[in-house]
Amino acid sequence: MIDKQIFFDGHNDTVLRVMRGQVTPGQLADGLPDGHIDRPRAQSGGLGGGFFAVFTPNPDGGSDRDAQMKLAAYDVPKPEPLDQGFALDWTRRGFDALEAMEQAGAITLCRTAAEVAAALPGEPLAAVLHAEGAEAIDPDFAVLHELHARGLRSLGPVWSRDTIFGHGVPFRYPADPDIGPGLTDLGRALVRECNRLRIMIDLSHLNAAGVDDVAAITDAPLVATHSNAWAVCNHARNLTDRQLDMIRESDGMVGINLASAFLRPDGRKDDDFELDILLRHFDHLVERLGEDRIGLGSDFDGSLVPRPIRDCAGLPNLVAALQAHGVDDTLLAKVTHGNWLRVLKRTWGE
C-alpha cells in the first residue's frame, strides 16, 4: 500500500546533472550536498519517483535567460533548432545515464503503471523515461521505436525550440501561449504513432495551437507534466482556462510546476516567496480540472523552486501547506500520486 504522502512527480532534470558530470549515479544513490534530488533526501521528503527527463541542451550553452527572467518583463528568444544527429547522440547517452543510475541503485526504471505503483514505496526512485523535446526523432520514427524499446514512455514534441514536429513557447512574460503555428504534418503523425505505442504526449512546452492540434488527434488523456495556471501567472509557459477545460474534458491532468517564474504573479525568477502563491495555482487548477486531475510536476534540478520547499527533502512543507489549506487525506493521496497512477494506467492501456 502506498502512503498518502508519497509523491510521484511529473518532471525532473536530474539526468542532465549526470550527463554534465556534475554528479555520478553512485552519488545520487548515496547522497549529495547540492541539487534537488538524491535517494536519501527523497526518502526523507516522501519523493517516491517520477518522470526523469532526457533533455538536449543548446550546444552553445544557451542565453542569459536567468538574468532576463529577473526583470519585470522579458522575451527570451527561442534557441535555434538542433541538428538531429547531435540530439540523437545526446539522447542515447541520456538513456545510458538512466540505466547507470538504475545499476547504482538510485532508481528503478518502470515501463508500466503497475511497476510504478510497486516501486513507489521502495528506496530506489520509480523512474519513467521521458524525452523533453523530440529533436532526436527522425521523420520515419525509427528512433522513436528504438527509444520505446529502451523504455521511453513519455515524450514532449517540443521544448522552447522549434522542431520538425511543431513549435514551442518562449520564455516570455507577460504573454499568452497563443504564439505561432502548432504541429506540423510530421508532428500530427508523431502523435498518432505515440498513441499506437502508448507513449504519453506531454503538452507542457507546446504553444496554444500545438495543444489544440494534439487534442484534435490523440485518443489518450491530455497531460501537461509541469505547468501552472495562466490566470494566476500570465507566463507564456502556463495554461489558459480554455486549455485547462480541454484537459478536464479528456480526463487528463496537470502537474504543478515549482519553478518560481511560473508560479509568481510577477513572473520573476526569484525564490523568495511563501507557498500561498502555489496554493493560488492549486485552487485554480482544482476549480477548472477537478480533484482527480492535479498532481506535482516539480521541475526539480531544472528550476529555482520556492525557498520553503528548497529540494525534495522539503516536500513535507508542501504537504503541511496543503493540509493547512484544508486538503484532506483523500485529496492528498490523489495529489501526491493517485491521480498520476490513474492517468498512466489509462494512457498506457492497463
Results as ranks from 00 to 15, higher is better:
M1F: 14
M1P: 12
K4R: 12
D9Q: 03
V15E: 13
L16W: 15
V18K: 07
M19P: 10
G21C: 02
V23T: 07
G26Q: 14
H36L: 01
I37S: 05
I37C: 07
A42W: 03
G45Y: 06
G50L: 02
F51I: 00
F55N: 10
T56R: 07
T56N: 11
N58W: 03
N58L: 06
N58D: 15
A67Q: 08
Q68K: 09
M69K: 06
Y74W: 07
P77S: 04
P77L: 10
P79T: 00
G85A: 13
D89T: 15
R92L: 13
G94V: 02
M101D: 01
A113S: 09
A117S: 13
P121K: 11
P121R: 04
G122K: 10
A127Q: 08
L129I: 14
A131C: 15
A134V: 07
A134G: 00
D140L: 11
D140N: 13
H145M: 10
A149F: 11
A149K: 14
V158E: 12
V158M: 11
R161W: 15
D162A: 15
D162F: 13
P170M: 09
P174L: 00
P174S: 02
P174T: 08
A175P: 08
D176A: 06
P177H: 00
L183G: 03
D185S: 11
R188S: 06
R196C: 11
L197S: 05
I199D: 00
I201Y: 09
H205E: 04
A208N: 11
G210M: 12
V211S: 01
D212I: 03
A215N: 13
T218I: 12
D219M: 13
A220V: 09
P221M: 11
A224C: 03
A224K: 05
A224R: 03
A224D: 01
A229K: 05
A229F: 05
A231R: 05
V232F: 13
C233K: 00
N234D: 13
H235P: 09
D241H: 07
R242W: 07
R242E: 15
Q243I: 01
Q243K: 01
L244T: 02
M246V: 03
G252W: 01
G252F: 02
M253L: 13
G255K: 01
L258W: 04
S260K: 07
A261L: 14
G267S: 10
D270I: 14
D272K: 13
D276K: 11
D276A: 05
L278P: 09
R280K: 14
D283N: 08
D283W: 10
L285V: 14
R288D: 01
E291D: 15
D292Q: 14
R293W: 00
G295T: 05
D299V: 00
F300P: 06
S303Y: 02
L315V: 02
Q323W: 00
G326F: 01
D328A: 01
L331F: 12
V335E: 06
T336I: 05
L341Y: 07
V343C: 15
L344I: 05
E350F: 09
